[in-house]
Amino acid sequence: MTALVLLDHDGSAIKQPARSAVAAALHLGEVHVLVAGHGARAAAEAAGLLPGVTKVLYADNEAFAHGLAEPLAALLVALAPGYTHVLVAATAAGKNVLPRAAALMDSQPISEVAGVIDADTFVRPIYAGNALATVRSSDAIKFLTVRAASFDPVAAEGGSAKVEDAPGIALPTLSRFVSAELSRSERPELTAARVVISGGRGMQNGENFKLIEPIADRLGAAVGASRAAVDAGFVPNDYQVGQTGKIVAPDLYVAIGISGAIQHLAGMKDSKVIVAINKDEEAPIFQVADYGLVADLFKALPELAAELERTA
């Protein structure tokens, strides 16, 4: 049994959720990985260093430069017949392409896999994580998106797989990349951070998110948000943690001014330690928090920044 993992990369390094997908694939057998991009051979070389990977396929084409689903799915379909499983991390990028490839192979994809029981049997959350379903696939080639927060990523180095060029194929031209408007931040990515601090509706506006910054700086944290804060326009969409946003499981998750709606809990309740700061002591977030502080966040946040500095 050999699995193929499509890796998300930034042109030179392999992203952490992709390394979690490799970890999931290692439960299934031998692991080959695919790096698709344009002028991204450095990323393919980096993929060769992932422990456990035995082969890297590198596909270089302008059509792969921006991760468009149509050409990437065509590439996966060309390669899939050599494999028993095709995997990708369940990021926005992964979820965009994998089902498209699966349908072309007449396979029912399995989304957000959180556990591997055996080659055919997988555990995945349903209903915003309020239930866990164990499902068995009857398809010849299984297509899986992997919930990165459920698998510890493989290390970035330690392996020594060779890089081979993927076979060239005819690519569809149904879509065209126009532009990207990406959030710029010096902070770690939400899905890779050891500490995440999220603000909710209680932050009242985007300006107030600045109160979180000195704390995030001090803890090396990523900054996230609840759906309510994103919908209200306080912060960009890529901050959203929850059922339909990003799924995170850091060592420490700090929820500030977040009530704890089911759809938010779905995105963070597997965090190792949860802290909640909210002035409403009845807020449901306290039911999952290891440490709860009932306080006005506008008083508590400056205090927290000062206390972290004082006791550092």
């Binding site: 990028a93 879509s175 990349f177 990207a180 408007e181 990406l182 890529d238």
Partner: peptide, 8 residues
């Protein structure tokens, strides 16, 4: 998308 917005 993961990092913000993208237009196609």
């Amino acid at each position: 998308v993961d990092g913000g917005l993208e237009t196609v």
